[in-house]
Nucleic acid binder design. Structure first.
Length: 803
DNA sequence: AGCACGCCGACT
DNA sequence: GTCGGCGTGCTC
């Protein structure tokens, strides 16, 4: 096995294959499948992943591997397979798939240096000036100092200069310094006596070690003796003390104390739900469960006790949680139960912290990972369960390369490890619920809230009537009243505004009529530049009307409101109320999210106004009112999932009120309160919503009845972009089965980004076994244009956003 | 992706 | 003759 087959870190279609390298004798034992290596590639050096080892090759001029970057593999043999599958099913490069599995700091860093091979005084004046006495300089200095590249080229040709390509790892390990005596205590005693009288501080330090010769953390020593590093350094230089380094983890949760919890007694429903999961764990059997439980029904306890079983079997668990729900409260629940056996992986951690948490997994120091989407690649080798909480969350779908869905990866890994996968949600995606109904997944239901709490009462407010009654503000009279009431009682309110409602659908403020596409039942998008309304699914368009086509009123407007504006008018309406605004702007800084929530939790404000991010996980005893300012904002986005998303969001938000002793109330403001998603959400009726929405999806040929694939073409030239998209649509129509529907070319919802025009084509299909092949062929066809002509073609199988 | 190689026009 | 423009093709 002296040949390694390597995927090089060059993301291009021509290099997207294995390259064979000779493993030098001295690296024979360290070069194993899954390690990163540095290999010569053409004239430079690049990072690569070793995917195979072999003794045979048909390449004659094998180059040797230059170096290894890892002592132990960073990609387990299972993840090698996952990576292949991932790149095959998302059509991404192999490197991209493997990069996606690793923490950012393991990405290679490249730099170039210029080396001087000749004697300094034998070279030209210009080069002497450039090198200024140094033997190696950074390559960029050539440009900075304005030296002509021809001079460098000539030097290289003459053998005076050499360009050196370096590959570095960005990883840094945090170390702590420890101090201990370098000599025996007897000699230490002598030293103490020999020290000059005035060296009182040095004596104090020595006295400490005479007393306690054990190694001590430098930080602690400095603190205990209130001395300085300089003094210690002196003693080290004298050879009396020595310093040693010990690698430590950057543990963002280390300082925190977690109250240890023990398993709660389960309700009858929970017991029924957990039994099949435990059975699958014990039988080492893969099965996908859909745990459908209303908000507050105790899904987490089911997760925790399932994990408990897994750990008892000596296996490991992955828990995925949506990014915005990965709050300290959530982490606390897992750390509280499993303590130091838990690693946490999410985006709020620094790169170094993420790396450290990830390494705990790699080294098998933890058995449970709680994390956001990418934690699905946690390098466990003995998985016993994978849990995806809030299964319906769109953040589980990666929106750029590789465009994977964590749910698919989970099921792939679950099959590999023969372990159960649990998808949990109060509002499962139609896809998952339909699969459960077809018994592809096993459905487990929790219909009751814990402690017999009831869901808060929901009142829907028709904002059209408010307008007719002369209320032009964005707060209905009922909501205003209730807010004042809470303020008086010293209770708290949460106001929710969807920021994505900043979009631009067109609606009549008199009759609530929203202008929709006649072919797609989806709101048209207002294009400011052309003053026209367009459908992003079927290319239909029309002029922006001056009056409502339904009631002929001239109150027809395009819509959008920001949190900032809401805060201003709220403050105007209720000057005495203390308001906390939470949106992207106020939570940009690290830790501000938590700080604001803590402040609200301590009743540092009366009203919490926010976007998406406050819809999840909030659990405050004094919150008795939840207001949704514009429930329509999601509804009319150009997205076939808009009704589903509205239902999910309203259900989610409603769950924030009255979670404790005080009963809660919910006010939903809307211009179309009669819409089934709002109506059924206010009644907490998932089943009816499911049936209604399924019939809509069936009628309009959308998932889960049909699969979707989105092809997006972009190029600086408008006509060319249209042309390529047209040709691709044509090819798809020719090469795919006649049952498939191909929509397009259509301008993308964001038709121009960064001076690039974007067109798209949507494929709706039921069964298209050759789709990957056809797509690959199309990509090959345009490979040249993509390389030379700045053409981009992206393919998204099962897209979540049609942008 | 990068980089070298190689073939053309515009110079010292 | 030499320098530098960019199209072409390769990287174990």
């Amino acid at each position: 096995m002296n040949i390694a087959r390597v995927i090089v870190d060059v993301p291009s279609s021509q290099t997207n294959r294995l390259f064979d390298y000779l493993i030098p004798e001295e690296l024979q034992s360290v070069v194993t499948v899954g390690v990163r290596v540095i290999v010569p590639f053409g004239p430079r050096k690049v990072m690569g992943f070793v995917l195979e080892k072999t003794t045979e090759t048909n390449v004659h001029k094998l180059k040797p591997i230059q170096d290894v970057m890892d002592i132990t593999p960073v990609i387990t043999s299972e993840l090698v397979e996952v990576g292949k599958w991932l790149s095959d099913t998302t059509l991404c490069f192999y490197v991209s798939a493997y990069q996606a599995m690793l923490p950012q700091v393991l990405k290679a860093k490249y730099d170039k240096e210029l080396c001087l091979l000749a004697e300094h005084d034998s070279i030209s004046y210009e080069l002497q000036h450039l090198f200024a006495g140094r033997g190696i300089i950074p390559y960029e200095e050539i440009k900075q100092r304005n030296v002509a590249y021809s001079v460098i080229q000539k030097g290289v040709r003459e053998g005076i200069l050499e360009v050196q390509y370096n590959v570095q790892s960005k990883e840094t390990k945090k170390r702590e310094t420890y101090i201990s005596p370098a000599i025996e205590s007897q000699r230490l005693d002598e030293m103490y006596v020999d020290l000059p009288k005035q060296a009182t501080k040095q004596k104090r330090i020595l006295a400490h070690f005479l007393h306690n010769p054990a190694e001590i953390r430098q930080k602690e020593l400095l603190h205990q003796l209130s001395t300085t590093r300089a003094l210690i350094k002196t003693l080290i230089d004298k050879g009396i003390l020595k310093e040693t380094y010990r690698e430590v983890y950057r543990d963002p949760y280390n300082q925190r104390e977690y109250k240890q919890t023990t398993p709660f007694p389960l309700t009858e429903e929970q017991t029924n739900a957990i039994e099949p999961i435990h059975y699958a764990i014990h039988m080492n059997q893969h099965e996908t469960f859909l745990l459908h439980g209303v908000t507050g029904s105790g899904k987490t306890e089911v997760y925790l006790q399932s994990i408990q079983h897994v750990l008892e079997k000596g296996k490991e668990a992955i828990v995925l949680v949506p990014e915005i729900a990965l709050t300290p409260q959530m982490v606390e629940r897992f750390k509280g139960r499993f303590g130091s056996r838990v690693a946490v992986l999410h985006s709020a951690l620094s790169a170094g912290e993420k790396y450290d948490e990830w390494r705990k997994v790699l080294r098998k120091e933890v058995q449970v990972v709680v994390g956001a989407r990418s934690a699905i690649f946690a390098p466990f080798e003995n998985l016993g369960i994978i849990i995806i909480d809030e299964e319906h969350e769109s953040s589980y779908k990666q929106e750029d390369y590789p465009r994977y869905h964590a749910r698919d990866v989970a099921i792939y890994r679950g099959k590999y490890h023969q372990c159960p996968v649990v998808l949990g949600s109060a509002t499962p995606t139609l896809e998952s619920f339909a699969r459960a109904k077809k018994e592809v997944y096993t459905l487990l239901s929790l219909t009751k809230r814990m402690n017999d709490a009831s869901m808060p009462e929901v009142e829907r407010i028709d904002m059209r009537e408010e307008l007719h009654a002369g209320n032009r503000s964005m707060f209905s009279r009922v909501l205003h009243e209730k807010l004042l009431d809470r303020l008086q009682k010293g209770e708290q309110s949460v106001l929710f505004l969807n920021r994505r409602g900043y979009s631009t659908f067109v609606m009549c403020r008199d009759c609530g009529h929203v202008i929709e596409c006649p072919h797609c039942d989806i709101a048209l998008t207002y294009h400011r530049n052309t003053e026209r309304l367009k459908c992003h699914y079927c290319s239909y368009e029309e002029a922006m009307p001056h009056e409502c086509p339904e009631c002929e009123s001239d109150s027809i407007r395009y819509f959008g409101t920001g949190t900032q504006k809401v805060e201003e008018s709220l403050q105007q309406l209720m000057p005495e109320a203390r308001i906390i605004r939470m949106d992207v702007d106020t939570t940009r800084r690290k830790g501000s999210h938590e700080r604001l929530l803590t402040k609200f939790g301590n009743h540092g404000a009366d009203i919490l106004l926010g976007t998406q991010m406050i819809a999840k996980g909030l659990d405050f005893a004094k919150v008795t009112l939840v207001g949704v300012l514009a429930a329509d904002s999601l509804l009319h986005l150009p997205d076939f999932r808009s009704a589903e998303k509205t239902f999910q969001l309203l259900t989610q938000v409603s769950g924030r009120a009255g979670r404790h002793k005080l009963p809660g109330e919910v006010v939903i403001q809307s211009y179309t309160p009669e819409h089934y998603s709002i109506d059924l959400a206010s009644q907490y009726d998932y089943d009816s919503f499911f049936h209604k929405e399924m019939s809509v999806r069936k009628m309009f040929q959308y998932p889960p009845y049909y699969f979707l694939t989105l092809v997006t073409v972009s190029h600086p030239n408008h006509l060319y972009t249209m042309d390529v998209t047209q040709k691709i649509s044509q090819l798809l129509r020719e090469q795919l089965s006649s049952q498939s529907v191909i929509l397009g070319p259509t301008p993308s919802p964001l038709t121009r980004i960064k001076d690039r025009y974007r067109y798209q084509c949507v494929i709706k299909y039921k069964n298209e076994p050759t789709l990957y092949k056809v797509m690959k062929r199309i990509l090959q066809l345009y490979e040249e244009a993509m390389q030379k002509n700045d053409l981009h073609i992206t393919i998204d199988f099962q897209p979540h956003q049609m942008m």
